[in-house]
């Protein structure tokens, strides 16, 4: 299923089957044209057409193509006059404003059996605050594209405690979908490194690098406590 946006002759298309709601596009967007949508609902009920993981504002978009370039799942495509713009032809990549991403393509199988191909160019640490976790809502396990997060079944013996959520760090591809999807902000992903090579424009890339490391949703509960 595709969700289509139209502004004059330029289009930004989102492939619902590929999108996992990781929020990378929302974080990198220089104009804040993309924001977080109802991630949990859209992933649980993929047939609902009006509920999309990322909310798009066509009035703010400048069609720079940053989100298309950075999307780990290649879910976004830019179209000009009805024709798909190739990645190399996007203005920011052509003029070496952004460096080349060093990634390895990984084949992923999600918990619900959907297969995806992702490019992992970030290194991150994932941590779960057990006190904030609601326990049993399973949004992180449903959202995770690589099946790294599982919710263990309750133990047969009632006196054994089972953790709410179990993370396999080897499978994690550091996309940020769990952080974006968690309703209470219990999953915290800390992006430590972005692998790149080649020349880039400092004016554009360095603030962008800071933005991609700032996972917006995990900041919200911290503000609440102040």
């Amino acid at each position: 299923m595709k969700v289509q946006f139209l502004t004059e002759s330029l289009e930004l298309m989102l492939n619902r089957e590929k999108c996992v709601g990781c929020g990378t596009c929302a974080r990198v967007c220089p104009k804040d044209a993309i924001s977080r949508g109802p991630v949990g609902t859209s992933r649980r009920f993929p047939t609902l057409e009006d509920i999309i993981p990322e909310v798009y504002d066509p009035e703010a978009c400048v069609f720079c193509g940053t989100c298309v370039y950075m999307c780990p799942f290649s879910a976004l495509t830019l179209k000009k006059d009805g024709e798909v713009v190739e990645l190399d032809n996007i203005q920011i990549i052509k003029e070496h404003v952004v460096p080349k991403l060093e990634f390895e393509a990984k084949k992923l199988v999600a918990n619900d059996g959907v297969e995806r191909v992702a490019k992992q160019y970030t290194v991150a640490e994932i941590s779960i605050v057990d006190e904030e976790c609601a326990g049993g809502c399973q949004t992180c396990a449903d959202v995770c594209p690589s099946g790294a997060i599982t919710v263990p079944p309750k133990s047969d013996k009632g006196w054994e405690t089972v953790p709410n959520v179990v993370v396999d760090p080897d499978k994690c591809i550091a996309c940020g979908a769990c952080d974006n999807g968690c309703p209470t902000g219990a999953v915290k992903l800390k992006i430590t490194d972005v692998k790149t090579s080649g020349e880039f424009s400092e004016l554009f890339w360095i603030p962008l690098l800071e933005r991609i490391k700032t996972l917006r949703w995990s900041e919200v509960p911290e503000e609440k406590e102040e």
Binding site: P38, V39, T41, R43, R44, T139, G181, V220
Partner: peptide
């Protein structure tokens, strides 16, 4: 600050499927 987050847990949990999300 804390309003519906759109996680969809209640929609899935409802035994009657009586809830839907509207934006």
């Amino acid at each position: 600050k804390a309003n519906c987050d759109g996680c969809g847990v209640c929609i899935k949990a409802c035994p009657q499927s009586a809830i839907k999300l509207e934006i």
